[in-house]
């Protein structure tokens, strides 16, 4: 089986690859969002501590 045949998925390329793409995007987002939120939170708290420390 060559690559072209593989990507064609027997004529069902749109349905198969859209399914896999949607899955990939949702799964990735569900990991990245909490990590970004944690970094933001830690940065904000560090700033807050610094302000309170100098006061």
């Amino acid at each position: 089986m060559n690559w072209q045949e593989f990507f064609a998925m027997g004529g069902y390329a749109f349905y198969v690859w859209t399914s896999y793409a949607v899955t990939f995007i949702v799964l990735l987002a569900n990991v990245i969002i909490p990590i970004v939120r944690r970094k933001q939170f830690l940065r904000q708290q560090a700033l807050k501590q610094k302000r309170q420390g100098t006061l």
Partner: peptide, 18 residues
């Protein structure tokens, strides 16, 4: 890649894996 196409549904059945 390894699994064969379904005898009725062809390659569309590969959506089953997700």
């Amino acid at each position: 890649y390894l699994a064969p196409p379904d005898y009725q549904q062809g390659d569309s059945y590969r959506i089953i894996y997700i």
